[in-house]
Design a protein around this nucleic acid. Structure first.
Lengths: 169, 169
DNA sequence: AAAGATTGATGCTTCAATCTTT
DNA sequence: AAAGATTGAAGCATCAATCTTT
């Protein structure tokens, strides 16, 4: 596509170099998530989001977390989390209980079976993360990737990055 | 989660530094695609994949492309492409015709309306790409991101990267 | 028979509406 | 009334099965 001189909202087109990098990034976000999903689905019967929910719970104090905090940690909407936790609860890996306090707060807890499940499945997932990313890059390349990722995530949702290392630009 | 010394398949855990970078990347692939999707859906009524299909066609000779080539360019499965082109054809932006040759080859063509559509919508998409990525990073950071992305994509599907600049490692 | 493409079913995500608790 | 969470409907992706053409 070639740029249109639209008087409505002038937008600078991308240079050839910028376009090439942008396309590489687009290729990444089109292929990496499906690749990770496929490994998890095949080996663990989980999708990426469910895996991250279990992982986040496994690191919480006593494995309890407010649904709203869990949603932020797993980077999903309340609705998406509700559906996912429903499935995880069905499987016996998570339970919910209402918790006294303001609003209609509800806590989710990772059961012993859930802990065993995530412990069983993480080696396979880490192996895939190594194969496709961590071991495929030099430490410098990996660090640069991480830094760029933090800046972009920060540009998307300035407040939802507290749990990540700050982008130092 | 902590590593389990599973005799089955030794997997080296990630170092703290590796884990931090990995998590930043995971945050990126959890947030950037939804952000781009949201802009396209809101402003253009298209999802990312449909946009890429139109964009790929707009750059093809005479705006004709074999379905199989289009699938590779847009990085989607044949099935996904079929469904998407079905919707785009409904909207009048694409037409299909069978093309003589081996197998059951079918070509897709971007109509004039389709060309107008992608031309109308790309400025808004480029603006978002600039805001979230291109203008948020220094040229060096963008180049490093692109390079890492190419290496990872190459690790995922070694043959489907012909249309990207080669990763020079 | 094999490659190319499509179809239909299933499952997950999103969106809007709703319910509950303070 | 407002925040937190859930629900159901609609849309898209994936998978397996199918159809078509050489």
């Amino acid at each position: 596509v070639t740029p249109r001189t639209d008087a409505t909202q002038e937008v600078a087109w991308l240079s050839d170099a910028q376009l090439a990098e942008w396309r590489s990034l687009v290729a990444l976000i089109m292929t990496l998530p499906p690749a990770l999903d496929a490994q998890l689905k095949r080996d663990a019967g989980l999708n990426s989001f469910e895996y991250h929910v279990l992982a986040a719970l496994s690191e919480a104090p006593e494995r309890w977390l407010l649904m709203s905090d869990l949603a932020a940690l797993a980077q999903g909407s309340p609705s998406r989390l509700s559906h996912a936790v429903g499935r995880l609860e069905q499987a016996g890996w998570v339970v919910r209980r209402s918790c006294p306090g303001a609003g209609r707060r509800i806590e989710a807890h990772l059961t012993d079976e859930g802990l065993r499940k995530i412990e069983d499945e993480s080696p396979g997932h880490v192996r895939e993360a190594r194969r496709l990313v961590v071991d495929a890059l030099t430490p410098e390349q990996l660090a640069a990737l991480g830094e760029a990722a933090r800046i972009i995530v920060d540009a998307i949702e300035p407040r939802c990055t507290e749990h990540l290392p700050p982008p130092d630009r």
